[in-house]
Design a binder for these strands. Structure first.
Length: 589
RNA sequence: GGGGGCGUGGCGAAGCUGGUUAUCGCGCCGGCCUGUCAAGCCGGAAGCCGCGGGUUCAAGUCCCGUCGCUCCCGCCA
């Protein structure tokens, strides 16, 4: 039997189409059988149209309608007719009309569903992933996948318009040291040798700069063999960008313009640009995070000055060891119970704080917790911290970074508890002036905070080696609502400077040559000054879709174990394959 | 690598300090019903309570182990 091909989609018929003979193809979203009259909600990705089988329809038609179950894929031919006045459904775009069925063809049947294709379906993620094809049928998933397409398309439009070229770089590349763990691919033709999947197209995009493609971009897949999180999984997509002859301001401008365009085009939201700029140090000091959430106004304050005058020994000890004591005023939270405070303390402890000290602000002064140690400076404390009667003040003393991040975590928790976070706002900022190096206590050596091709800021170049810890890099993050959206830097293009950096991070010339000799070689031939950035596409779409995990905006995501539940990846391979690849699987203990 | 949470018919949940026959909603099967749109009504089927061990007269419930999922710390240049 010939398949009945659609003349229209399920989302387009309106009153003006009345009287038309149409054929629709789609899935049985719902069916309501009233004995006489029957209704079918027919769904495709464009919408839902109600199909009616009248009570006086021929027996044949009624029988085939009776057969229909959820998610049967069917074709319906019939006539568009207006619904009776009182039956109009204003919640449906097609709610003014219905299609009076004349013929129904079942294109394929559907087993009993593991979960309903429904906006309200609350099937757990595990199940949704196993049956992702069904999950993706829901309008909410289709909306997100479509939004992703539109965002990606707008990015391409904008960048092309600005003169960028989209250039593909290889997926099978050389394994490079540092950074995340590589995914390796055994090379069949070279026993014992491996390709690696790119953690990013970093080296290739820099080489493209050497080649003179001064504005490059790529929607690039990146692979990192690390544990997944809500905003990260083993493979992700980034909008990889690199430019020559630019300073970071030029790069900021491109990204600001791009995001303005993308938000306007896809969500009709006008972002305020340029974005705020916050130094790493300020972000840590004020927000307790290098990816500050600016949607709410709770600020960490410095409490060091009061520690001297107070009697609290634990804090004094912290300062003697070179640490810091940070304070956070929780407005109107003096009614918090011990239990509530200790829950906040748990949050602080997760981030390495020893504890969470507190005091309450009352009419007469400070009360409870550690207040007795600071009675003499109560007024001054209130004034300096901006605390008012009815507030709760929270403290963490630790090394500076831990004090900031753990109290920053408390800040975030508090904002959540007190419902301080406004919905549907996007607060962007650039975080700048990151340290170039970080001290690795385990291995007793300096490590690049970003990557080792990052340019130190001008004023530090001369005395790099003296105090590596003080050196700030020409590197920057783009943050939105507490999510790190992009990371980038101006790169080193001077081989001499590059060598000095290698030396500081304990990278021998020999090792450097072996690993990225090709880049260093390329840099001998007139490399332009250049820099770049790479916004994470998944995270951008996640934020724009109002989701908290990138898995909601990836068509076929992996779970937190890095497993694709639908196709059961990763999987074992057979002996033959292993032999060809010169591999042997070791038995775990 | 470490910590928290969860695992009960196909799905989502309830099941208290252990105590009759494991409950509810959705779905499924059958029937009734001419205007519904999360249709309604009547009836029915469907459970190794993740898995293994232990405590007990008695375990979905307590203990130990294990597997899976999830959130977080670490990790993620």
């Amino acid at each position: 039997m010939e398949k009945m091909k659609r003349t229209n989609t399920c989302g387009e018929l309106r009153l003006k189409d009345k009287g038309k003979t149409v054929t629709l193809n789609g899935w049985v979203h719902r069916h309501r059988d009233h004995g006489g009259i029957k209704f079918i909600d027919l769904r495709d990705r464009y919408g839902i149209t109600q199909v009616v089988i009248d009570a006086d329809a021929e027996e044949n038609l009624k029988n085939s309608a009776h057969e229909l179950k959820f998610e049967y894929c069917i074709a319906v031919a019939g006539t568009v007719r207006p619904r009776p006045q009182s039956m109009i459904n204003s919640r449906m775009p097609t709610g003014d009309i219905e299609v009076q069925a004349e013929k129904i063809q079942i294109l394929s049947k559907c087993d009993v569903l593991p979960f309903m294709i429904d906006e309200r379906s609350d099937a757990r993620e595990e199940l949704r992933f196993k049956y992702r094809y069904l999950d993706l049928r829901s309008f909410s998933m289709q909306r997100k996948i479509k939004l992703r397409h539109e965002i990606t398309f707008a990015v391409r439009e904008y960048l092309k318009d600005k003169g960028f070229l989209e250039i593909e770089t290889p997926t099978l590349i050389k394994s490079t040291p540092e950074g995340a763990r590589d995914f390796l691919v055994p090379a069949r033709l070279f026993p014992g040798k491996f390709y690696a999947l790119p953690q990013s197209p970093q080296l290739f995009k820099q080489i493209l700069m050497v080649s003179g493609f001064d504005k490059y971009f790529q929607i690039a897949h990146c692979f990192r063999d690390e544990d997944a999180r809500g905003d990260r999984q083993p493979e992700h997509t980034q909008i990889d960008i690199e430019m020559s002859f630019v300073s970071k301001d030029d790069i900021f401008k491109v990204i600001e313009g791009m995001l303005y365009y993308v938000f306007k085009k896809t969500l009709d939201i006008e972002l305020k640009i340029p974005f705020r700029r916050i130094s790493y140090t300020e972000a840590m000091n004020r927000y307790g995070s290098d990816k500050p959430d600016l949607r709410y106004e709770l600020y960490l304050k410095n409490f060091n000055n009061f520690v001297e005058k107070g009697e609290f020994k634990a804090f004094k000890a912290v300062l003697e060891q070179g640490g810091a004591v940070k304070a956070l005023v929780a407005p109107g939270c003096s009614s918090f119970s011990r239990k509530q405070i200790s829950e906040l303390e748990e949050t602080a402890k997760i981030y390495g704080a020893q504890g969470l000290a507190w005091m309450k602000v009352t009419e007469t002064g400070l009360e409870g917790g550690i207040s007795k140690f600071y009675n003499s400076s109560a007024e001054k404390i209130k004034e300096t911290l901006g605390a008012k009667t009815g507030d709760l003040i929270l403290f963490v003393g630790s090394d500076w970074k831990k004090a900031c991040t753990s109290l920053g975590a408390v800040r975030a928790k508090l904002a959540q508890i007190e419902k301080l976070i406004p919905k549907n706002t996007f607060e962007f900022c650039w975080v700048t002036d990151f340290p170039l190096f970080e001290w690795n206590e385990d291995e007793k050596k300096w490590e690049p905070a970003h990557h080792m091709f990052t340019m130190p800021q001008e004023q530090y170049i001369e005395s790099l080696e003296k105090n590596p810890g003080d050196v700030k890099g020409d590197l920057y993050d783009l943050v939105c609502n507490g999510v790190e959206l992009a990371s980038g830097s101006i790169r080193i293009h001077d081989p001499g400077l590059q060598e000095r950096i290698f030396k500081i991070v304990g990278f021998s010339e020999e090792e450097a040559k072996k690993r990225f000799g090709f880049l260093l070689e390329a840099f001998k031939y007139g490399p332009p000054p250049h820099g770049g950035i790479a916004p994470g596409l998944d995270r951008l779409v996640m934020l724009m879709a109002g989701e908290n995990t990138i898995r909601e905006v990836i068509a076929f995501p992996k779970n937190t174990q890095g497993v694709s539940l639908m196709d059961e990846t990763p999987s074992e391979v057979n002996e033959q394959q292993l032999r060809e690849l010169h591999l042997k699987v070791l038995k775990e203990e």
